[in-house]
Simulated scan of single mutants.
Amino acid sequence: MSLDLDDLDRAILRALTQDATQSAGALGRRLGLSQPATWRRIKRLETAGVLAGRRVDLDQDALGFGVTVFLGIKLAAKGRVSLDDFERAVTAIPEVQVVQHVLGLFDYRLRVTARDLPDFERVLRRRIMTLPGVGQVEANVLLSEERRPGPLG
């Protein structure tokens, strides 16, 4: 379903990306709308699929996960291993936060969190390298990350 967004819709989306916990009343006061009008717009954005959900961002460092690694995974033999089998197995690993099927040098890109480098090595050797069909693996350790506003920013 395609939806034409006006300036108020964009302002609501920008505000919710900054703080998804704010009430429709508080958001409406910021934007000069009534609570019911704001609530209706938010519901319209949800129904149209523009707002796909609200989430909580956890501070990985505060939780004791100080290392984030991006892995490029090239499957050894795509014909012998189904992509579904690989995806089902990799998503069962709790340290794997994101699984992306990509086009390019690698077949998958994973975001993996670990307590430290020895913990990451354990996850890599015991869990990821034993997945069905894993061939080539390339690791990139995250040094820093900046949150960039989306296209509505």
Score class of each variant (00 low, 15 high):
residue 3 L to V: 04
residue 4 D to A: 14
residue 5 L to I: 09
residue 6 D to V: 10
residue 8 L to R: 15
residue 8 L to A: 10
residue 8 L to D: 10
residue 9 D to T: 15
residue 10 R to D: 07
residue 12 I to E: 00
residue 12 I to K: 02
residue 15 A to H: 05
residue 16 L to I: 00
residue 17 T to I: 01
residue 17 T to W: 00
residue 19 D to I: 00
residue 19 D to W: 00
residue 21 T to A: 05
residue 21 T to C: 00
residue 22 Q to M: 09
residue 24 A to G: 08
residue 24 A to M: 02
residue 27 L to P: 03
residue 27 L to S: 04
residue 29 R to N: 11
residue 30 R to E: 15
residue 30 R to N: 12
residue 34 S to V: 09
residue 36 P to Q: 05
residue 37 A to C: 01
residue 37 A to M: 05
residue 39 W to N: 13
residue 39 W to E: 13
residue 40 R to V: 12
residue 40 R to Q: 15
residue 41 R to N: 13
residue 43 K to I: 06
residue 45 L to E: 14
residue 45 L to H: 13
residue 46 E to K: 03
residue 48 A to L: 05
residue 54 R to V: 01
residue 55 R to G: 06
residue 57 D to T: 02
residue 60 Q to F: 11
residue 62 A to M: 06
residue 64 G to T: 09
residue 65 F to I: 07
residue 66 G to L: 14
residue 66 G to Y: 12
residue 67 V to E: 14
residue 67 V to W: 12
residue 70 F to Y: 14
residue 74 K to R: 15
residue 76 A to I: 00
residue 78 K to I: 11
residue 79 G to P: 00
residue 81 V to R: 07
residue 82 S to W: 12
residue 84 D to P: 00
residue 88 R to T: 13
residue 90 V to F: 07
residue 92 A to W: 02
residue 93 I to L: 15
residue 95 E to A: 14
residue 96 V to W: 05
residue 98 V to S: 10
residue 104 G to S: 09
residue 107 D to F: 05
residue 108 Y to C: 12
residue 109 R to N: 10
residue 110 L to H: 08
residue 111 R to N: 08
residue 112 V to I: 15
residue 113 T to S: 13
residue 114 A to L: 08
residue 115 R to P: 06
residue 115 R to I: 14
residue 117 L to S: 06
residue 120 F to N: 14
residue 120 F to L: 13
residue 120 F to D: 13
residue 121 E to D: 15
residue 122 R to Q: 14
residue 123 V to G: 13
residue 124 L to H: 11
residue 127 R to F: 11
residue 128 I to E: 09
residue 134 V to E: 04
residue 135 G to S: 06
residue 136 Q to M: 07
residue 137 V to R: 04
residue 137 V to K: 03
residue 138 E to D: 04
residue 141 V to Y: 09
residue 142 L to Y: 01
residue 151 P to G: 12
